[in-house]
């Protein structure tokens, strides 16, 4: 071995290229997101957990520990049980409706036609319009006197003026209304999810199925749907979590009524905890969503994992 004298090597500063190191740079980039989650999600969550096992109200802001008493009281309340049922109906009803609309919408928007771009842009509107604005519009459409839906049906001779439905006044119809409005809000998202899924399937696979003798339905249910199911499942998780924890439509459209017919968990938690000031019970109601959502998310994620292997 020949050693060559190195002329005055200078050690580069230890920190000079620190930003070139993946682990350092990565940590720096991820830090804001983690901080955000810790401060604005983790903190309030732990606070809610503590509220739910304390006797905290805004009239008596004590941090007295009471164990699971709040939960026991909440469960014994028949309004709460109704609310729990409503929440499931509201969530899964609107998701199902939204998915069906989304799938049809996606299929329609796949095919080229004149003005497709405009329609594609318009169809995103329900998602983009502020819900407060949309809810007001829907409220007018469901109005007991001025409902444009009733007016149209009467004009078309489908129903008689005397038995025009009172959309938001009838408990069953009111639930249907909030489901419809939520599905209306969700379906553009479903369309986007379905479009993304369908366009990610290589054309060769669809063509192969066609040549192999599969008609429209078989292609859809044996090839396309199974292939996009993982993507749709992720979309569904989003939909379920957002709907389950949402109170805006109920709050704006029916205010939980009539007679709690459309009251959902988030709405009731808000009513009890914030409006009535019974923070500990409100927190207990809200925390009921956690195990439910956790189970749903775990089931769906496991399902996706299985499909991918």
């Amino acid at each position: 071995m020949v050693t060559i004298a190195e002329p005055g090597t200078k050690a580069a500063s230890r920190f000079r290229y620190i930003l070139d190191r993946r682990e350092t740079l990565g940590a720096i980039f991820v830090a804001p997101a983690i901080l955000y989650v810790l401060l604005l999600v983790g903190g309030p969550f732990l606070l809610a957990v503590y509220y739910s096992i304390s006797a905290y109200t805004i009239y008596d802001p004590s941090w007295r520990f009471v164990g699971l008493v709040n939960f026991a009281q909440v469960i014994q309340n028949p309004v709460f049980l109704k609310t729990l049922g409503n929440t499931f109906l509201f969530t899964f009803g609107s998701q199902l409706l939204g998915l069906i609309l989304g799938k049809f919408g996606a299929f329609l928007l796949m095919r080229p036609f004149a003005g497709r771009k405009i329609v594609r842009a318009l169809i995103i509107l329900p998602w983009a319009v502020p819900i407060a604005l949309a809810a007001v519009a829907w409220e007018w459409m469901f109005d007991s006197l001025y409902s444009v839906i009733n007016w149209s049906m009467i004009a078309l001779g489908i129903i008689d003026r005397s038995d025009a439905p009172n959309w938001l006044g009838n408990p069953h119809l009111a639930m249907l209304c909030v489901i419809i409005v939520n599905a209306w809000r969700f379906f553009p998202f479903a369309i986007v999810i379905f479009l993304a899924g369908i366009t990610s399937i290589p054309q060769d696979i669809i063509d192969a199925a066609t040549v192999d003798g599969a008609g429209f339905w078989r292609r859809n249910y044996q090839i396309v749907l199974p292939l996009i199911l993982p993507i749709v499942a992720v979309g569904l998780i989003f939909g379920i979590v957002f709907t389950f924890t949402d109170l805006s439509i109920v709050y704006l459209l029916t205010n939980g009524g009539p007679i709690n017919a459309t009251s959902v968990l988030a709405f009731q938690g808000f009513q009890v905890g914030i409006v009535s000031g019974d923070v500990s019970h409100g927190a207990a109601i809200s925390l009921f969503m956690l195990p439910v959502l956790l189970v749903v998310v775990i089931i769906v994620l496991r399902f996706i994992r299985r499909r991918e292997v």
Partner: peptide, 12 residues
């Protein structure tokens, strides 16, 4: 029957 360039096998 047709065989495609990328085979078009059904992945699922």
């Amino acid at each position: 029957a047709m065989m495609f360039q990328s085979y078009g096998l059904y992945p699922h």
